[in-house]
Write a protein that binds this DNA or RNA. Structure first.
Lengths: 130, 130, 130, 130
DNA sequence: GTGGTCTAGACCACT
DNA sequence: GTGGTCTAGACCACA
């Protein structure tokens, strides 16, 4: 159940819903908050909880299965794959964040901001409770 | 003229060309690299320099005019609006980056990364030459 | 369906088609004739009904979304936004007309017309069937 | 000189500058505030006062000459034509306002406003000092 | 099915 | 010269 609350989508964002969901699940798995072998909510259940079209959730599950993050077990639903989860070391997980940070760095340079100010703001945001 | 070289688009990226351009111009204006009152390249000129359809550039200019970043002077061309540019102080510019950093922080938390490691990576990226 | 008949454009008028459409939709929404949450005709459908290029309709929808009058539901279509429609009271709707009336008043003064004559003409025009 | 202050243009408005000017001069002439035979400011003078391109003013004068509102007297500048000015009766002047009022009436209907409220607002605007 | 984006090319209005 | 508008037609992404 806690998974249902950990996941959320913003339909207003420019980012496609299916991609928002994939990214979140991928990160939760890499971060260890989704244990290998644990069961994912059913397509219908997750779709309803997020007020999203079931086909969208289904697409997410299928793509994550292709990636090896999830495992489809016939008649049982999806579960988190062994290699999909927390086996990731700190470096691997950091690599998953690199793209986002690169974008932030680019924007900061274009805004001609002091690195120190940027780092201070990020630190503050990292310390906030989720 | 240097503006023509400061702007660039990657047609291959998933992000629409017009949005890439808008973001760049918006940030260049906020960062003060585009002085208020200075003239923007003509639609045709910029379109040719970027190897892009003039309508795409025109769309960018129109939307930025709606936002108040650019000013249309009929029959003469576009110029950077007074309130569109470098009046922004460091704090205001930092605020423009907040959204991106918030997203990075959220992702870092989901990946259960150490704040120190995240900050170190960002610092490294900020120091790289553009 | 009735919406398709409520909307119309005159391509011959000097006013751009997309602007004619925007104005009409904006006013229909403010006047309550377009209920919040109700679905707009699809781009292709409206384009065909008006004998207009789909891109023109698409532009209208995009700009009205920026204004907050319409809401984009990805893959599903556009609907009238909650705050875009009939929550407007008589006073707010009157405010939307103020600019036009101000212009009329200015012109009347420049023509040195008697207020009574102007009001009589407007009253007559208001009573005509649309 | 008072003419220079009676005329004004808003470059930000959607309406073309040359049309704004033409309409204003036409109305001032019809309303009698521009007496037949009186001299118009020179192109250069008016252009400077309005911060507008001289070619634009020149276009305005030429078009109004075609309409018979102004008269070009070689070496002397433009002056208001006899038939261009206050010979207009109240009915003719009212007719010049009809288009604007028709537009206002259309908008009022689309906004579903009470005629009485619209008339009251216009009356108030007509009574304000210019 | 939906809207979004881009192209190529034409024509118009304004200064 | 400038930007604005529209068309026709293509392709893509999303639900």
């Amino acid at each position: 159940m806690s998974l249902l609350h950990a996941l959320s989508v913003s339909p207003g964002s420019g980012e496609p819903i299916y991609r928002q969901l994939m990214d979140q699940i991928r990160r939760l798995a890499a971060g260890g908050q989704l244990q290998p072998g644990s069961e994912m909510p059913s397509v219908r259940e997750l779709a309803q909880a997020l007020a999203v079209n079931p086909m969208t959730v289904s697409k997410v599950y299928s793509l994550l299965e292709l990636e090896g993050v999830l495992l489809r077990r016939r008649g049982l639903g999806m579960q988190v794959a062994d290699q999909g989860a927390a086996t990731h070391g700190q470096d691997e997980r950091l690599a998953l964040l690199r793209g986002t940070l690169q974008r932030a760095a680019l924007e900061a340079k274009q805004l001609e901001l002091e690195p120190a100010a940027v780092l201070a703001l990020l630190q503050q945001l990292l310390e906030e409770k989720p």
